[in-house]
Design a protein around this nucleic acid. Structure first.
Lengths: 186, 186
DNA sequence: TTCAAATTAGAGTGACCACTCAAATCTTCA
DNA sequence: TGAAGATTTGAGTGGTCACTCTAATTTGAA
């Protein structure tokens, strides 16, 4: 992918993939549908992406990065910023959020490739949450902040998933409640 | 299904389905595999179940019921009992837990059939959690107990899902921490 | 013993899907 | 401008899958 044409094709494919996920879920997002929508042929698709999965992962990752309150990882984000970004992704991109969850639980228990990647992503998020907690409450031991971050992030995942099931679920309310509990003194 | 033979076939199919889910995940759990393992032919399968999905749902539901601390819904269960049962299902039946989550997030946003059923199930669980919280802390307003139960159950879901991704994740630790936070005074 | 209904047999169906490949064409830069 | 390499073309492949259908067989109540 060194020429302009390749980049344009890539963009068209990613856009078509995102639109299809929103409209038809993962079921409707076939190679044929993606290519048809993007005005591209399967050969071109596979010239750029190794697999359908790779294209989908790219779409999700870019959407997640788009709401990052501190994309450069400068450590300037507060816990509220981080939680906000998380909620925004969940609420504004619910279709992608569903796909994200779905990828996480797909495959067998020893399908380590994708799972490892998601764990690393989760790990990074926990670290940032822990750092933000530490900044806000310096009296907290590092280990304590980290454990609270772990509980918080996993719990937020649960909130997000429930919202995927029930669009009326008040994500913000429960997220706030979790943050308060997390920052409460022992 | 009025004769003994039909019931036996049903059992064989459910057992084979459960075993296949544990061994190969949802991908390997095809009609062909189920029938082969159960020593049954597709015709028999479809004489008893309307679809593959129905058989899988049956397996999951029966496994969840099997760990219910109060199957008769007498209201004798404590919050710890409920959380324990939840954790047990997550840890001991991790393959089924993964399938459970997967079914929840499968399909499109308006695939209301299965989703509605799971929401009702979740709703029932929240009610029992709320009742247990109320029994333990009668000074709490009903609405408050219920909201805490909602946050707790959703958060536990998140914990469970993370455990599905990372078998080393200490579910019990984080669950306990959540319970403590939930029961803490405002 | 009879017979209607339940159950099994098992080959078959049609659809769909992710992905491939070799030839043709285009793009860039030396 | 030439040529190396990037990109497109698009028909094709091999496979899998959930599910169906009709005829044969078995069951159990009357």
């Amino acid at each position: 992918m060194r020429y302009k044409a390749g980049l344009e094709t890539r963009d068209k494919i990613l856009q078509a993939t995102g639109a299809l996920i929103a409209e038809t879920g993962l079921e409707g997002t076939t190679i044929k549908a993606i290519c048809g929508r993007a005005g591209v042929l399967p050969g071109s698709f596979y010239n750029i992406f190794d697999s359908k999965e790779q294209a989908i992962i790219t779409v999700v990752r870019e959407a997640i990065n788009a709401v990052d309150p501190d994309p450069e990882h400068l450590g300037t984000d507060t816990l509220d910023d981080l939680v906000d970004a998380y909620i925004r992704f969940t609420v504004e991109q619910e279709d992608l959020a569903r796909v994200y969850v779905r990828m996480a639980v797909s495959g067998t228990k020893d399908n380590s490739e994708l799972r490892g990647r998601m764990l690393r992503h989760h790990e990074g998020r926990v670290s940032r949450f822990a750092a933000a907690i530490g900044r806000q409450h310096p009296e907290l031991a590092d280990g304590e902040a980290r454990q609270r971050a772990e509980t918080l992030v996993s719990s937020l995942n649960g909130i997000a998933i429930h919202r995927v099931l029930d669009p009326a679920f008040d994500v913000a309310l429960h997220a706030r409640s979790l943050v308060n509990m997390t920052l409460a003194p022992v």
